[in-house]
């Protein structure tokens, strides 16, 4: 029994606090709080200044989505076109293909990549030999620092049908080579593979930090109760990282339609373009190479609106389910 008691002291917090609020809110204590809070507001000032100066002051740039912006003329001199860019974007014959490709990659990312660091962190957490654990941690953290250009180059070296190492292994067991790089069917697995390879180790850092907050006494109590490996994982370890997982998941939804532009750009070729074109590569060509600032801002705005809807929705859902959400 003590297992469940000690472990819930953490999660109860979330539920406890909102209840504590009305109790506190008698007039007297409220005023007292406000006076004390002056220190909190003081702490808040540098951060608020940062957001105002570097995030909100440049925000006027968004209005160029409704203009035919030209840098030379500036925002004041550029012509207003209303929702024309949005109309063009939605009526683009490629719109649904772009949406489909982006959406599928985003979902795959959520299903395959998102859990990968959690699982890896949990496995690392179970390692008994500290030196070994640290060594593995350091090794898996390295790929994060390799640029996509290098990774794309190495992927080509490994997977090409002209003597690629991976393909030779495949040919050995499967009897023939597979066109990993040109086949549309293999594009998404390849992209997922690359991202999992590159970022999983890096992603574990935050979960390892969260796991570091687990109270050792809870483990001891669980052992006294005779809980096995799996039950300890389920009842002690996971609850400790749950809030981190939820926060990260909600934040990830905010960038739902973002795909790694450079990665996809480098892996695209004439034979797999049908499945490879996403909003980000499209915006790159139209926006950067053709200099259509307004159009690319409009597309970005669309992605942002989708992102914010998802974040607010997920946050609400999390709260309904008794979790904290992000705010």
């Amino acid at each position: 029994m003590s297992l469940f008691k000690s472990n819930s002291s953490q999660t109860e917090l979330a539920v406890d606090v909102p209840q504590a609020k009305p109790a506190d809110s008698s007039m007297k204590t409220f005023l007292k709080r406000l006076k004390k809070d002056k220190w909190l507001y003081l702490l808040l000032i540098p951060g608020l200044l940062y957001f105002i100066v570097f995030k909100y002051a440049p925000m006027w740039g968004l209005i160029i989505a409704f203009q035919d912006y030209s840098p030379f003329k500036g925002v004041l001199g550029s012509e207003w076109v209303g929702f024309d860019h949005f109309k063009n974007f939605f009526q683009n014959p490629d719109f649904f293909r772009l949406l489909r490709n982006t959406f599928i990659l985003a979902v795959l990312d959520l299903v395959f990549f998102f859990p990968a660091p959690i699982i890896l962190a949990l496995l690392l957490n179970e390692l008994r030999i500290n030196l070994y654990k640290r060594t593995v941690q350091t090794l898996i953290y390295v790929p994060h620092f390799m640029s996509w250009v290098i990774i794309a180059s190495i992927t080509y070296i490994f997977f090409t049908t002209s003597g690629g190492v991976a393909n030779e292994i495949v040919a050995h067991f499967y009897g023939k080579e597979i066109n990993f790089l040109s086949s549309p069917d293999w594009f998404r697995p390849l992209i997922m593979g690359q991202i999992i390879w590159k970022e999983t180790g890096w992603g574990t850092v935050i979960f390892l930090a969260a796991l570091a907050t687990v109270d050792q006494e809870q483990y001891e109590a669980a052992i006294v109760d005779g809980a096995g490996r799996f039950r300890r994982l389920w009842h002690v370890t996971l609850p400790a990282v749950r809030s981190t997982i939820i926060v990260l998941l909600i934040l990830r939804l905010g960038n739902f339609l973002d795909t790694g532009f450079q990665q996809i750009f480098l892996m695209t070729n004439s034979l797999n373009r049908d499945v490879a074109d996403v909003f980000d590569t499209y915006v790159y060509f139209v926006g950067i190479t053709q200099g259509a600032f307004s159009y690319s801002t409009a597309v970005g705005l669309f992605k942002s609106v989708v992102g914010i809807i998802l974040v607010l929705g997920a946050n609400k859902l999390a709260k309904k389910m008794g979790q904290e959400g992000i705010f």
Partner: peptide, 11 residues
């Protein structure tokens, strides 16, 4: 501010 940004030129 995570979702919306003014872009390169205003910054």
């Amino acid at each position: 501010s995570m979702m919306f940004s003014g872009g390169m030129i205003p910054t």
